[in-house]
Design a protein around this nucleic acid. Structure first.
Lengths: 218, 218
DNA sequence: TAGATTGTTAATCGATTAACAATC
DNA sequence: TAGATTGTTAATCGATTAACAATC
């Protein structure tokens, strides 16, 4: 697998490819061209071919890509061909929601440890997992060799959880709290704060009638 | 407010600026420079200045930006200076979690209508809102003049909800279902599917020990 | 063979960064 | 006045797209 320097834009498209491919596979479609993928995803076919070509030659000229094979390849690239264990801190509604996703997910990412420091939560059951106190975080993460952590606590507690994750050796964090968090350079953090998404969505609402102009302009 | 063509990258940074500014404001800091914002957000100060300059001149040379004033300006740009009503479909755990965010949010985006077609859910209460059946979606959205919709149903039901949102005249959709959805050109859809985030995070895990090389290479 | 489609190079497009005059 | 910082132009960098030889 040749590996130069892959841009973040490329990496962010890989899970999307995986999603369509899974869909195609469940409909028992065996082969797909970059052209067809492009239509489905509103992407330029050349971009799709180029993205994949960073990692190797997976297609067949004149034919396209084998769906099952490409799924396997992208899983390998994303390192989710084996089960990846994930820890979650914050056993509220959102934490529950994410744990439940587990059951239906086709991906090999499983939440295998849940933590919360609220006494009422500790010891309760979420989807077959017992909620553990934060004091057990470091030991459990080490024991299970967990490398990814999810934060679903309120904003004011988020930085504290980040720090504990970092001490525990977590390498990647998915943060749902609406807060700006500091991590050391070697730890990666992705923000899934939905208020950001909502706010940027609001920007695109046209203000019709604002100056008595009803035309939808581009 | 001068308005050329604003790139999506710029729009996506505005909510982040708003977040830091709110934080600064709550700490009663009155003025901030692009330099300081850059440090906090790991962004180039020139980029921050340029982003803001697309919309007007809001800073003072030699001084920086007035925090309160800039918050107001960005709210105006994002069109969240008045309350924006949002509809949500899918009263499961995730739907509950998002409704609860409402209470604490400093943003002016409020979920004011919740829908679900599961008989056990209809009529129940979430955070002072009564869950309505889907049959009432069009009427309620028209009545409340709702323009943004959130989807928190399972993947296989998501496209159906999209279609109903579109018929109801919704202009922007925030989708949490792990599905690829089709919308007409005039409707905007943002995906908040957390599995995508998790998968791209997995890519960045180094594979130490894989070829007996423990060095963390950049 | 003719048609389709890949992988890849070159061209284009757009976004980020550097630099600096203006000015608080 | 000297120091700081903006708004903006020009330079750089990187990502997307077009084009096409190779080949199934």
């Amino acid at each position: 697998m040749k590996q130069t320097k892959i841009s973040e834009a490329v990496v962010r498209r890989l899970p999307i490819y995986l999603q369509v491919l899974n869909e195609l596979d469940s409909r028992e479609i065996q082969t797909v061209s970059s052209q067809e993928l492009g239509v489905k995803l509103d992407l330029n076919p050349a971009q799709i071919r180029k993205d994949l070509a960073y990692f190797g030659e997976f297609g067949r000229k004149g034919i396209g890509y084998d769906v099952v094979y490409l799924i396997e390849i992208i899983r390998q690239i994303l390192k989710v061909n084996q089960t990846i264990k994930v820890a979650l801190v914050g056993a509220g509604n959102l934490g529950h929601a994410l744990c439940n996703y587990n059951k239906y997910s086709k991906d090999n990412m499983k939440i295998t440890a849940v933590f919360d420091d609220h006494p009422a939560k500790i010891g309760t059951n979420i989807n077959n997992l017992v909620v553990q106190p934060m004091s057990e975080l470091v030991a459990t993460i080490a024991e299970q060799k967990i490398r990814i952590g999810i934060i679903t606590v309120p904003a004011f507690e988020a930085q504290n959880v980040v720090n504990q994750f970092v001490s525990a050796g977590i390498e990647g964090i998915l943060n749902f709290a609406p807060a700006i968090l500091r991590v050391p350079d070697e730890v990666r953090i992705h923000n899934a704060d939905f208020t950001r998404e909502l706010l940027s969505l609001a920007y695109y609402l046209n203000h019709e009638g604002e100056d008595s102009d009803e035309t939808a302009m581009d």
